[in-house]
């Protein structure tokens, strides 16, 4: 089951640097990733068919990930994480402004392609485990949650990764437990729990952010005048 964590962690890490201009490309890559995953699952499922192929492709199955796939999944995840770490600052600068990055000598095109490639890998890994339909939720949900909780770029990456890992693990535990839930004898699908948890975390993070903000506002209300006058005395003094 270690794969799921690596995969989830990796996937979450990726959603962060999505400049709006690249949304179209991102959509295409998502589609391509899902397509690839469907192909692999199809090939895999026809050789050792336990669940129906269609069901596996659409909803995936964490429990159906085979021994033979394990090494390649881990390797792909590791390579993707490495690429992300290596390109980290260039990605940030490019998403701030491609022109600015290009002027600093950043190969914006190549960085963009590297980003899309690891994104595609992440999506197809996610689709292997929780299925094509719900993979998008696992790719987009945790970063969106992290954005509500932190304003540091590195922090957002780590928080998103953790949320993804927790959601997947907790989902697995609940899926095991659900065996005893009605209708008895049929476990509920893991994918359902994972996505439900991702969504729940997102809502909770929104509430937390709002409470923190409200408290901060109450704190700063004491000295708003001071802050305002502090910034008004500008030109020529801080020399």
């Amino acid at each position: 089951m270690g794969i799921a964590i690596v995969a989830a962690g990796l996937i979450e890490l990726l959603g962060l640097h999505r400049p709006r201009a690249r949304d179209v490309a991102t959509g295409l890559v998502l589609g391509a990733g899902l397509g690839l995953a469907a192909l692999f699952l199809y090939l895999d499922a026809t050789s050792s068919s336990t669940t129906g192929v269609t069901v596996t492709i659409l909803f995936g199955s964490l429990f159906a990930v085979s021994q033979q796939m394990l090494p390649s999944i881990v390797a792909l995840s590791a390579v993707s994480l490495l690429v992300l770490a290596v390109c980290y600052r260039m990605l940030l600068l490019s998403s701030l402004s491609p022109d600015l990055a290009a002027a600093r000598g950043v190969p914006v095109r190549a960085i963009g392609i590297a980003y899309l490639v690891i994104m595609a890998v992440a999506v197809s890994l996610a689709a292997e485990t929780i299925g094509a339909i719900l993979a998008t939720a696992l790719v987009v949900g945790p970063p969106a949650t992290a954005l509500r909780l932190t304003k540091r770029p590195g922090g957002a990456l780590v928080v998103a990764g953790l949320i993804g890992v927790v959601a997947v693990w907790l989902g697995i535990v609940l899926a095991y437990d659900s065996y005893y839930w009605p209708p008895a004898g049929h476990g509920w699908p893991v994918s359902f729990f994972v996505v439900a948890l991702v969504f729940l975390f997102y809502l909770v993070a929104g509430a937390v952010a709002r409470i923190v903000q409200a408290r901060r506002r109450r704190h700063s209300e004491a000295a708003p005048r001071l802050a305002a006058s502090g910034c008004a005395e500008h030109p020529g003094d801080a020399a």
Binding site: R20, L92, L93, L96, R152, G154
Partner: peptide
């Protein structure tokens, strides 16, 4: 640059932007 579109939700503080000016073109973290 002339216009930079900055998403209000983007997890990038002012100090991160300034730090990118120092080493944003470098590899690694």
């Amino acid at each position: 640059p002339q216009k930079i579109f900055l998403d209000p939700d983007m997890p990038l503080r002012a100090r991160d932007v300034v730090a990118l000016g120092l080493d944003g073109h470098r590899l690694g973290v």
